[in-house]
Computed example of a mutant assay.
Amino acid sequence: MPRTTPPRPLDVEALFPEVAAHRRDAVRLHPRPGAPGVRDSSMGGPLLWPRAEPWPHCEDDHPRTAFSPPPAPEPLPLVPVLQLFAADVPELPFPPGTDLLQVLWCPFDHEAGYVPRPELRWRSASDCADPRTAEPPRPAGAADDYLPDPCALHPERVVDYPNRDLPEEVSEALEERFEQLEEETGWSYWSHLSVSEGIKAGGYPTWTQDPYWPDCPGCGHRMEHLLTVNSCEFDGESWRTWLPVEDTPATGTVWDLPYEERTRIQCPPGLMLGDMGGIYLFDCRRCPDRPYAYHSDCS
């Protein structure tokens, strides 16, 4: 079943033409539990991985925390997070000769952000004539919160307007109008009208703290936002505009549903990154080797 974000309740660009120049296209991926195959775009599903290519492992040191004791001191297999084919998400900036993006991560805390450490692979699907058929590995001792359940994707195109990335001079100029709008209508630019929530490609990161845009270690330019992997599709403030139409209860609100049913709608892959946080992936499209970086934050 497709997933459809409700139309914004107000015309953002008519009300605030100052933000129009900063709009960006995004693709909400809407993962939902399923049984994807190796040739499907998916989250937490099997990857189209050449049988002859060794499976990647993590050899980093892993800190001990109250919530995530370190694993045994041995290389740990990475786990599949996202697989995106150009046919499903053509908006991704695929390097020449590739049509497949794969994201894996080590499902244990790392010093950088105390979250899983992701790795990216760009591929040509045609090079994987003899794919691996074994089930994706699940390292012993990894927290369920870091192991996405297998999900099919339902890509949907939406428009993002900057939230915390709104230039300071624009934000200050619009502050009173934002407040007046919320007083008169109940709709908040920050929560309801700006940045799309959920797991997505492109657009703006859904920061919960101050923005952090990494610079490319090669050319020194600021990297571009590639993907956001959030803990949930919406939160207690944003649900009115980012809860898909197809998941809207016939009566009451999503918060009136039993906890288990609401959780299946709000957090379909079963991830929890910190306190309802997210991991943001960036890449440099100036450098031919496509360096990438990540950053995380939470409430």
Rank of each mutant, 00 (worst) to 15 (best):
R64D: 15
A86R: 13
A20Q: 07
W105A: 03
V19H: 00
R39F: 08
S68Y: 00
S68K: 04
R51M: 07
S41C: 08
A72T: 12
D40N: 09
P96R: 02
E53C: 03
C106E: 14
P90F: 02
D40R: 07
C58N: 14
D88R: 07
H30R: 02
H62T: 04
A52I: 06
A52E: 15
V38W: 12
H62C: 05
G44Q: 04
P75D: 09
G45Q: 14
L82R: 05
A20D: 11
A72N: 00
R39A: 11
W105M: 10
M43Y: 06
R28S: 15
A35H: 10
P70C: 09
W105D: 04
A26L: 10
F67N: 15
V79Q: 10
P80T: 07
A35E: 15
P70Y: 09
G97T: 14
L100R: 03
T65Y: 06
S42L: 12
A26P: 15
P50Q: 11
L82D: 07
S68R: 08
E91F: 01
R51G: 05
R64T: 02
R23M: 00
V79A: 15
P80D: 08
G44M: 05
A26T: 14
P70L: 06
P63H: 11
L92T: 01
D40A: 08
P31L: 13
S41H: 09
R117H: 10
A20L: 04
H62V: 02
D61N: 09
R39K: 12
L47D: 13
Q83E: 06
M43S: 06
H22A: 00
P63L: 08
R32I: 12
W49R: 00
P69D: 14
R32E: 13
G45H: 12
Q83P: 01
L101D: 02
A21G: 13
L84C: 06
G37Y: 02
L47Y: 07
L29W: 13
R51T: 11
G113Y: 11
P50E: 11
H110W: 10
R51V: 06
F85L: 13
